[in-house]
Deep mutational scan, measured.
Amino acid sequence: MKHYEVEILDAKTREKLCFLDKVEPHATIAEIKNLFTKTHPQWYPARQSLRLDPKGKSLKDEDVLQKLPVGTTATLYFRDLGAQISWVTVFLTEYAGPLFIYLLFYFRVPFIYGHKYDFTSSRHTVVHLACICHSFHYIKRLLETLFVHRFSHGTMPLRNIFKNCTYYWGFAAWMAYYINHPLYTPPTYGAQQVKLALAIFVICQLGNFSIHMALRDLRPAGSKTRKIPYPTKNPFTWLFLLVSCPNYTYEVGSWIGFAIMTQCLPVALFSLVGFTQMTIWAKGKHRSYLKEFRDYPPLRMPIIPFLL
C-alpha cells in the first residue's frame, strides 16, 4: 500500500511549517490536523484551516487524503483561524445574560430607577406577564442548547462571544429598562391586545421548539449528516411545506408577539434587527439546500412563505 507525503505551508508566506512522512492514504484531514498539532501545539485542530490552494476553501475534517486531487506528495496550505471557543459555551453565555439582566430590572434592584423604587413591584399585569415570557424564552434556549441542538461545527472564533453578548445583553437591558420602569405605560388596547400578543408568542414558541426537535431527529448524534427536513405529524412542522427555516419564522413571530404585548420600541427594534439577521441566515441555508439536494422542494422560500 502506497503512503503519502504531506507538506504543510503557510498560506500567506509559503513557508514550510511541517512535513509529514508515510501518511496513510485513508487518513482524514482531521487526522492530519492532529499530526500537525504534534509539531505545532500552539495551533490545536480547531484553529487550523487546511486547504489545497492558499486562497481556496477550507477542507472538511472528514475529507480523505486519497480522494483529494493531489499526488502522493501533497501540499496543503495552513491558515490560523485564531483562538476558538465551543458553540455550546457561546450559546449558554449569550442566553444566560439576558435572563439575569432582565430580572435585575424586573425586581428593580438599587441604583436603576431611584431609591424610592428599590425592590418595588409594578401594578401592571402586563409587566409581570412580559417577565414570565422573556424568562421562559431564554430558559427554553438554554435547555435546547444543552439537550436538543446538535452542532455541525464544534467551535467558533473567540471574538464572537463578545459580539454576541453585546447584542443580546445590550438589547435585554434596553428593553427591560423601559418595560419595568415605574412610569411604564400599558398597551393602548389593554387586555385584548395583551391576550392576542400572548397567543402569538406561545404559538410561536411551541412552533420553534417543534422545529428544533424535528431538525434534531434528522441528524444522528456525533454526525454531520444533512438531510432535507420534511413536515412530521406535528402540525407545527407543517411550515416546512413553505419555508426552509421555519425555526427562524417562529422565532421572529415570538418577538413580534412580545413587541405587541409590551408596546415597547426597543423590543420592536430588537425584532427588526433579529429578523434582518435571521433572513440572512435563512437565505444562506436555503441556497445550501438547493445546491446540495437536486430534489429539494421548489415551493419553499427561505423564511416567509411566498415572499422571502
Rank of each mutant, 00 (worst) to 15 (best):
V6F: 00
F19S: 10
A173L: 08
R79Q: 10
A176P: 01
K16F: 09
R79V: 01
L239R: 10
F201V: 07
I8H: 01
D53V: 07
D61W: 00
S121P: 11
E94H: 05
F236Y: 09
S244L: 14
Y44W: 08
H212G: 02
H3A: 09
V202A: 12
T145W: 02
F270L: 07
F111S: 09
I101C: 07
F209A: 01
S49N: 03
D63H: 12
C133H: 04
E94F: 00
N164V: 01
H115D: 03
Y77K: 15
W255T: 09
K227R: 12
Q205H: 07
D217N: 08
M301L: 09
V88L: 09
N208E: 15
V70I: 11
P220H: 04
E292N: 08
A191Y: 01
T262W: 02
F240H: 15
Y178M: 14
M213V: 10
D21Y: 09
S122I: 10
R150P: 01
N34Q: 13
P186L: 09
S49E: 12
I161S: 13
F91W: 12
H3K: 05
P302N: 00
K67T: 13
W281M: 13
H40W: 03
P187M: 02
E144K: 01
K233T: 11
S86M: 02
A130T: 07
Q193E: 04
I101E: 05
L17M: 02
R108V: 04
K195Y: 14
H212Q: 04
G154Q: 08
I29V: 11
F119V: 09
I8P: 02
L290D: 14
V88I: 11
G170H: 01
G170C: 09
S223P: 09
K57R: 12
K140V: 14
T237S: 07
V194T: 01
I112L: 03
L92M: 07
R216C: 14
E292H: 12
P187C: 13
I29Y: 09
L59R: 09
T72D: 03
C131W: 02
G56Y: 07
V70K: 15
F107E: 05
V273A: 10
R159P: 06
R79W: 10
T279P: 07
P98N: 14
L272I: 01
H115K: 00
N247D: 05
I280S: 04
W174G: 08
E94G: 02
R79G: 04
H286G: 01
Q263P: 06
L272V: 10
L290I: 06
G170S: 11
H115Q: 09
L59P: 09
Y44D: 14
P266I: 09
L104C: 02
K227Q: 14
L81F: 06
I203N: 02
M175L: 06
N208Q: 13
L142H: 00
C131P: 14
S288T: 08
F293I: 08
G71Y: 03
P229T: 06
L239V: 07
L215M: 06
G114S: 09
F293C: 10
L20T: 13
P98L: 02
E251Q: 04
R294P: 11
L290V: 08
P220L: 11
T120A: 06
A259G: 13
H181S: 07
A199G: 12
P302H: 06
L183Y: 15
P266L: 05
T188P: 11
R294C: 02
P187H: 00
I304F: 10
I203R: 00
L241Q: 11
T237V: 03
R123L: 04
A83G: 09
P186R: 09
P305F: 06
T13S: 09
K285C: 03
A130G: 14
S121H: 04
I228V: 11
L35D: 14
A46V: 07
H3W: 12
F258I: 13
F36N: 13
Y230P: 14
T185D: 13
W87C: 05
I132V: 12
K285E: 05
Q48F: 03
C18V: 01
L158Y: 14
L50T: 12
S86K: 10
P231F: 01
A221W: 04
R123N: 00
G82V: 07
F209V: 10
V267E: 06
A259T: 12
R79P: 09
L198Q: 03
P186V: 13
E7A: 10
S152L: 06
L142M: 02
D80E: 02
Q84W: 04
R150H: 09
L242Q: 06
I29K: 02
Y95F: 02
V23Q: 00
L59H: 15
T125E: 12
I303W: 02
F147V: 13
L242E: 15
E94V: 04
Q205R: 02
Y184N: 12
E24Q: 09
I8Y: 01
Y113D: 00
Y95L: 03
L104Y: 02
T13A: 10
A191D: 06
L215F: 15
A191N: 11
Q193S: 08
T279A: 11
R14M: 08
L239M: 00
L269T: 01
I139V: 12
C131A: 10
Q84L: 09
I132L: 01
F100D: 07
T125D: 13
N34Y: 00
R294G: 09
T166R: 00
F306S: 08
L146D: 02
K195N: 09
C131N: 14
T39I: 05
P266A: 06
Y167R: 15
A96D: 10
E24L: 08
A11W: 04
T225M: 09
K283N: 07
K33H: 12
D61E: 08
P235L: 07
G170F: 11
L269V: 08
R108K: 01
L299P: 08
V23G: 09
R47S: 01
A191Q: 03
F236G: 01
K22F: 07
I260F: 07
I101M: 14
F293M: 06
Y178Q: 04
R219H: 14
P54E: 15
N234D: 09
F136V: 06
Y44C: 10
Q277L: 08
H286K: 04
A191L: 12
P298T: 05
P235S: 06
W87E: 01
D61I: 08
P220I: 14
Y296W: 03
Y177T: 04
Y138Q: 15
H137Y: 05
E251V: 10
S210L: 03
P98A: 08
I29H: 03
Y289N: 11
S244F: 03
F162V: 02
V23E: 07
P220R: 12
T75Y: 04
F91S: 04
L92R: 02
I29L: 07
K233M: 12
H181Y: 06
V202I: 15
G253R: 02
V109A: 11
L158W: 14
F171V: 08
K233I: 14
P305Q: 06
K38A: 14
H134S: 03
G207V: 01
G190M: 11
T185S: 07
T13R: 15
E144G: 02
F91G: 03
F171L: 07
L50C: 11
A282S: 06
P297Y: 00
K233S: 03
I228T: 11
P45L: 10
S271Y: 03
I203T: 12
Y117C: 11
F107T: 06
K224Y: 14
E94A: 02
P54W: 07
F209M: 09
L242D: 05
P110H: 12
W87L: 05
E7R: 09
G284S: 07
C131G: 13
L17P: 07
I303F: 08
I211T: 10
K2Y: 07
I260H: 13
T72P: 06
F100M: 03
F100H: 01
M278T: 09
D63S: 13
G114A: 09
S223A: 09
S135V: 02
V90A: 11
S49T: 05
L129V: 05
S58R: 07
Y178I: 14
R51T: 15
F19I: 12
M278V: 12
A83M: 14
P229L: 07
Y138H: 05
H3Q: 04
L239A: 08
T73E: 13
V202W: 00
C165Y: 11
T145F: 04
R219V: 15
K283R: 10
I256R: 07
T120S: 11
F201N: 14
W87T: 03
T225N: 08
L104F: 06
S152Q: 11
E31D: 07
P182F: 02
A197Y: 00
D295A: 11
F107S: 08
A46T: 12
G190Q: 01
I29Q: 07
S58E: 04
T188D: 14
K2H: 05
P187E: 01
A197K: 15
